[in-house]
Amino acid sequence: MTTFREYRQAMASGVQPSYTVPTLPSDAIPFQGERAGFVTRAIAACIDVVLVIITVLLTAAAWWMISFIVNPSDAAFGAGRAPKVATMVVYGYFLNVAYWTVGWATGGRTIGNLIMGVRVVNFRGERVRWAGALIRALFCTVFPIGLLWVIVSGANRSVQDVVLRTSVIYDWVIGIPGLSRKPPAPPAAG
């Protein structure tokens, strides 16, 4: 506790007050960096999958509309013009893998992760590399049931986490992915 006299002297000598604007609610600080639990991760995954499904449906709609331009003489109106369901499913799986790979390899988060405040890190606590992200995305897409292992795991790890030595941690602070420059040093406190 500085007295008002000390404060005024510090201000008079040109010291700038250091306002440390908190980036986190104080009640959320204690569990930052811990491995996330099942519910958060499941919701994040669901958000991602829903986004992928929406994208697939939009793609199908776009495909259907474009087909009128490309092949206007075709008599078929509905099912004949729309892409096959199997194609859409394969496309969806592919899209999901690509989306998760890009999300985890660039910022460590997908949109679902970002909304739920979690991030994927490797065994060093760093961002997973592209190959690791691709393998994890494939594994998660093909074997989503592996997420259930979080419930019984002693360390909140899914099957994919156990195999690939990755972790999903709570990280509510949204950093800038790939930014190597450090923020300017805060001025000395008065």
Partner: peptide
């Protein structure tokens, strides 16, 4: 549960 994250998280 051991929920400590490995290393120092990036962000």
């Amino acid at each position: 549960r051991k929920v400590d994250a490995p290393g120092k998280p990036n962000s």
